[in-house]
């Protein structure tokens, strides 16, 4: 860089930018350890109470009423977490299967509607989630389908198939088709070539797509909000409800645990990518 002052200004601006991105998360983490229950902005002293309360270890020597409230919200939170995980696992499986099949079909076969499919598969990612959410809600109600975990799973799959498709397609584009041709020339059937030659090479892409689908499914709020019905709540919808009802110190602890989980998942993704390139 020819201009050291310009570079210094740019560096300062960029560091402020990263502070802007990370400071809010640090605020949550900090306050999740603050014992002041009335005004969490005023630091009282360090505590694990909110975590204990959430994990059902309620140590606050408060009245029985207070204890009951903690236990109820703990139960609800754990149930929401279980729903989120179940939905994410099933959704990831379905959308990975369908998305991968679609990517293979579009990359390895020639047919008339190919251009249409390529464009069409972009739409679920581009459609605002509120439109998709209410469309699914009207659809399920009109055909008389009860809102349940199944409707959440269907809702997530409608857009996650496209995400998996994109990732796997990018991977296929980098492969050498000669290997598959060799397999076919040597007498392997279509299925055997797919299974023994193409899929093993695609594995990192499929894994990457599945990881992305899992993360997005765990975090989806809007579509779930519309198609979950009253009995099923996922973690993001549960937190959204808590945020709407008013700020409670327990949210800081949940949020901190979620931030920690997301860092673990991101690091896992990075590690997978590093292994892939080795």
């Amino acid at each position: 860089m020819r201009n050291p002052i310009g570079w210094a200004a740019l560096t300062l601006f960029s560091l402020v930018f990263f502070l802007f991105i990370y400071a809010p998360l640090l605020v949550i983490i900090g306050y999740s350890f603050n014992s002041n229950p009335v005004n969490m902005m005023i630091w009282e002293h360090f505590t694990f109470d909110w975590y204990r309360g959430l994990l059902g270890l309620g140590s606050r020597a408060a009245d029985a009423n207070n204890r009951a409230a903690y236990i109820e919200s703990t139960d609800q939170m754990l149930r929401a977490l279980r729903t989120s995980l179940t939905v994410a696992v099933v959704t990831t499986t379905i959308s990975t299967l369908i998305g991968t099949a679609t990517a293979i079909a579009l990359a390895r076969y020639r047919f008339a509607a190919k251009g249409f499919y390529n464009g069409f598969l972009m739409l679920p990612m581009m459609m605002p989630d509120i439109v998709l959410g209410i469309g699914l809600l009207i659809f399920f109600v009109t055909i008389g389908m009860n809102l349940s975990m199944l409707t959440i799973i269907i809702g997530h799959c409608t857009f996650l198939i496209s995400y998996v498709f994109i990732i796997v397609q990018a991977r296929i584009a980098g492969l050498d088709p000669a290997l598959e041709e060799a397999s076919a020339d040597l007498g392997a059937s279509e299925w055997v070539t797919l299974h023994k030659v193409l899929l093993p090479q695609l594995a990192p892409g499929i894994l990457g797509g599945a990881l992305l689908a899992f993360v997005i499914s765990m975090d989806d709020l809007v579509i779930t909000y519309f198609v979950a019905g009253t009995d099923n709540t996922t973690l993001p919808v549960f937190i959204f409800g808590m945020v709407r009802r008013g700020v409670k110190p327990e949210i800081n602890a949940i949020a901190t645990m979620m931030i920690a989980a997301s860092i673990v998942i991101a690091a896992l993704g990075l590690w997978l990518r590093a292994r892939k390139t080795e």
């Binding site: 960029s14 990263f18 991105i21 990370y22 809010p24 998360l25 605020v27 949550i28 306050y31 005004n39 969490m40 902005m41 993360v215 765990m218 975090d219 709020l221 973690l235 993001p236 937190i239 959204f240 945020v243 700020v247 949210i251 800081n252 949020a255 979620m258 931030i259 997301s262 860092i263 998942i265 991101a266 993704g269 990075l270």
Partner: peptide
């Protein structure tokens, strides 16, 4: 490192990140 830092928010919950601003901007906020 900085590319990793910019992608990390993709993995963390949207509602959690919004909630942080609620804490920051409240009249009695930080």
């Amino acid at each position: 490192l900085f590319l990793f830092l910019i992608t990390l928010p993709f993995f963390s919950s949207l509602i959690v990140r919004l909630y942080a601003w609620l804490l920051i901007l409240k009249p009695s906020g930080i």
